[in-house]
Simulated scan of single mutants.
Amino acid sequence: MEEKKWIGADLIFDLDADHIPGADQMSYDEMLARIKIEVLRLVDDFLLGDLGFDVSHLKIVFSGGRGYHIHVHDERVSSLKSHERREIVDYIAGNNLNLDWVFPTKTVNYKEIKGRIQESRVRCIPPKGAGGWKEKMRIGIAWLIEEMRSLDIPDLRSRLPYLAGYSDALIAGMLKDLYEKRGERSGSDMLLEKNIFDCFTNKRYEDLFIGLLEHEIIPRFRCEIDEPVTADIKRLIRLPGSLHGKSGLKVVPMERDDLDGFNPLSDAVPEMYTDKEIEVYLRRNVDITMRGKRITGEGICKVPEYAAMFLIGRREATLEFVENSEQ
């Protein structure tokens, strides 16, 4: 025992629907669909994209519950310690992204006033192909410009919650600078063409636009992962092929090409569960599709064995009537 030592670990990501805003208002299948979007973003945009791992180094596993585990088996990361893995987490989650680094300033003009040199500076926009978060933020600028183009201020406030703390006058000033024509072109037309923020007539308008990028765009590109799991070099992860105790579903490993068409409520239902109907008591109204069959009802109902296992595991059903079903 004294000779044992830690020699390495896969880089592991845990994505669970619990971490998605509004998950408590979603049905189970809605949560599964939403978390798959996060998985695809993590795999395609970050692991295979920005970080450059080969698809052969990835193992994607449906957790059997409400999410997925991603294992990166690559000797280049197996020896990383917790603080180094934490840096990878921060990158993927967009934590503390420095916008002064994304949009650095440069001097565009010098002016001498009463013997003193004053310089005019402007924020730069990353060029096409910048890669990483710089490329993501450039794409975000284009999205934000189009998103705001045809909306009035009340609609903008509804669509972009960050604007709640700002006056109509300030928002209107920012919009005017972006969309009002100056000759044949508008300010928004020139932003990504010239790669500089030079269309704003007031620094407060520019700061508002930058604030929108920080609070509305970064969350759209970041990935919702369980951050402590990735930083933990001794974390135990559910074994592929086992059954999840709270759903009865199988923990299913898959390749990247299998992920798009994977349906947990069909593909993760163990073959040993039959179509034989079992009488259960449903605590509340149930409406779910498993193995292609829609299952609905409330109270005492008969459901296929596979659905009974799933609903009992999730505490949505019992094998006998419970008078106070909310406890």
Rank of each mutant, 00 (worst) to 15 (best):
P228T: 11
P228C: 07
P228S: 08
V229N: 08
T230G: 06
T230A: 08
T230V: 04
A231Q: 12
A231L: 01
D232T: 06
D232L: 05
I233S: 03
I233L: 01
I233Y: 00
K234A: 13
K234F: 13
R235M: 12
R235Q: 12
R235Y: 07
L236M: 10
L236R: 14
I237Q: 03
I237N: 11
R238Y: 02
R238S: 12
L239E: 13
L239D: 11
L239R: 15
P240S: 04
P240C: 02
G241Q: 02
G241Y: 05
S242H: 11
S242N: 08
S242I: 04
S242E: 09
L243K: 09
L243S: 01
L243R: 11
H244G: 01
H244C: 06
H244V: 01
G245H: 12
G245N: 12
G245P: 10
G245Q: 10
G245T: 11
K246R: 13
K246S: 15
S247W: 05
S247D: 08
S247N: 09
G248T: 02
L249N: 09
L249A: 08
L249M: 07
K250R: 15
K250F: 02
K250Q: 15
K250Y: 05
V251Y: 05
V251K: 04
V251M: 06
V252N: 01
V252T: 15
P253E: 07
P253A: 04
P253D: 00
M254L: 09
E255V: 07
E255H: 10
E255T: 14
R256Q: 06
R256M: 03
R256L: 13
D257S: 15
D258H: 11
D258A: 13
D258Q: 14
L259Q: 04
L259C: 06
L259R: 05
L259N: 03
L259T: 07
L259D: 06
D260W: 02
D260R: 10
D260I: 01
D260C: 00
D260H: 07
G261H: 05
G261N: 12
G261Q: 03
G261Y: 03
F262D: 04
F262A: 04
F262C: 01
F262N: 03
F262W: 00
N263H: 07
N263K: 15
N263E: 13
P264R: 13
P264V: 14
P264S: 14
P264E: 13
L265H: 10
L265Q: 10
S266F: 01
S266Y: 06
D267C: 09
D267W: 09
D267L: 09
D267I: 11
D267Y: 10
D267H: 15
D267K: 14
A268S: 13
A268K: 11
V269G: 11
V269H: 08
E271A: 14
M272Q: 14
M272H: 10
M272F: 12
M272W: 01
M272E: 14
M272I: 13
M272N: 11
Y273K: 04
Y273V: 04
Y273N: 06
Y273W: 08
Y273H: 02
Y273L: 07
Y273T: 02
T274K: 15
T274D: 11
T274S: 15
D275Y: 03
D275N: 10
D275E: 11
D275S: 13
K276D: 05
K276L: 03
E277R: 14
E277D: 09
E277M: 14
I278C: 00
I278L: 01
